[in-house]
């Protein structure tokens, strides 16, 4: 299988602190690749470099065979690389539907259009509705997104990412702050997303990771210390010691 997204020797430091240390990792078509690691391992910093919010000090990022290392976040998004945020990032005063429609609008031609009301745009609305259906977030479309429950906001982030018609998804802890009852449902959603999009999943919830992921990489102090199938990682001594909290 060919790699959709790949990094080669990615490095990033803040002052003396190395947060990404020679990371080479790839995401292949049709798979879910989970990146796990303790707090402060540099997972979010890594995703921020992939999505363009941070510039790596060294190394290359390739997406669909193109070098995107110096592309802006917007260029990467338009190339088909969509992401969600660990700390929910939405437009709070706009309605749930408007949020998804904004994501869809980016895929429906130029936004330098000044006259026709956007909310009557059939193309945008159709794409947004489709994304909402996929995430099963069809109710309460017209209330400000800021007033949604935490779980709904997490689902909204996913719906926005899907409305971007992505060619790969970067999910930064989609389960963050989710209760156990909702996490089961969200795991099902992830399984469904995996059928349509290659997923790079960053997650703390190990049950979800081992259920959804095809491959798992363990990031500790900015380095990948182990990589393999979930079963292999479960059996890997280093990974267990570093992350799974097992000292034996």
């Amino acid at each position: 299988m060919s790699a959709v997204l790949a990094t080669h020797g990615l490095c990033k430091s803040f002052g003396a602190l190395t947060v990404t240390d020679d990371v080479s990792l790839d995401l292949r078509a049709g798979e879910c690749h989970a990146l796990i690691g303790p707090n402060g391992a540099g997972k979010t910093t890594f995703v921020n470099q992939l999505s363009g919010l941070l510039t790596p000090d060294a190394g290359r990022i390739e997406f669909l065979g193109q070098d995107i290392t110096t592309d802006s976040p917007a260029e990467r998004a338009n190339a088909g690389l969509a992401r969600t945020f660990q700390i929910t990032s939405i437009i709070p005063s706009m309605t749930l539907f408007e949020n998804v429609a904004l994501a869809a609008q980016a895929r429906c031609g130029s936004s330098y259009r000044f006259f026709r009301p956007a909310h009557k745009d059939r193309q945008i609305n159709a794409l947004a509705e489709k994304a909402l259906e996929q995430i099963a977030l069809t109710s309460r479309n017209d209330i400000p997104a800021g007033t949604l429950s935490h779980g709904e906001k997490r689902a909204l982030e996913l719906a926005m990412a899907i409305a971007q018609k992505p060619k790969a998804l970067l999910l930064d802890e989609p389960m963050a702050g989710i209760g156990s009852d909702e996490s089961g449902q969200l795991t099902d959603t992830l399984l469904m997303l995996k059928r349509d999009y290659p997923l790079l999943l960053i997650e703390h919830d190990m049950d979800a990771v081992f259920k959804v992921a095809d491959r798992v990489s363990v990031l500790v102090y900015g380095r990948i210390i182990a990589s393999g199938t979930p079963t292999e990682i479960r059996a890997n001594r280093e990974a267990r010691a570093a992350y799974l909290g097992d000292e034996t």
Binding site: S51, G52, L53, P73, S89, Q105, A118
Partner: peptide, 19 residues
């Protein structure tokens, strides 16, 4: 219009709009 929606949203969360 589309243009105005982008500006309004970017006022609240420009990072999200970039991504």
């Amino acid at each position: 219009a589309r243009f105005g929606r982008v500006l309004l949203a970017a006022k609240e969360n420009s990072t999200r709009m970039e991504t």
